[in-house]
């Protein structure tokens, strides 16, 4: 099983890793049995056109290389995006942006878009 260079890069040097204090939305997915748990924190602001955008995003992940890499990638893909666009990011988008994932990892650890979806849902519930 080989990971792409991009996966290894995001895995060893993850982007936007950490916690947002007082986040506007939080999403956690996964379970310890599979070995992967992901938590996404978002801050939402309105831009000039009164559109809600993800102004900041961070993640914490317990999991394998592809779980960490997909978490890192989703933060890059979603940052500064309007909520309605961020919602549309799929697992495939994340995998493609990482130049592919090993087939066995496509379903087990590619949960980042789900975690983002949960974070947005959490925000929408509160607002």
């Amino acid at each position: 099983m080989n990971y792409s260079k991009k996966v290894i890069n995001h895995f060893t040097h993850p982007h936007n890793q950490g916690v947002i204090k007082n986040p506007d939305g939080v999403g956690m997915v996964g379970n310890p049995t599979c070995g992967d748990l992901m938590k996404i924190y978002i801050k939402v602001k309105k831009n000039k056109n009164k559109k809600e955008i993800i102004s900041d995003i961070k993640f914490e992940t317990l999991g394998c290389a592809s779980a960490i890499a997909t978490s890192s990638m989703i933060t890059d893909l979603a940052k500064n995006k309007p909520l309605d666009e961020a919602k549309k990011i799929t697992r495939n988008d994340v995998a493609e942006a990482l130049e592919g994932l090993p087939p066995v990892k496509m379903h087990c650890s590619n949960l980042a878009s789900d975690a983002l979806g949960e974070a947005i849902k959490d925000y929408e519930k509160k607002n």
Partner: peptide
């Protein structure tokens, strides 16, 4: 451990 933070503990407390 910094990357995983407290997700496991939070998962169980939730």
């Amino acid at each position: 451990r910094k990357v995983s933070g407290k997700v496991l503990q939070e998962y169980y407390s939730q």
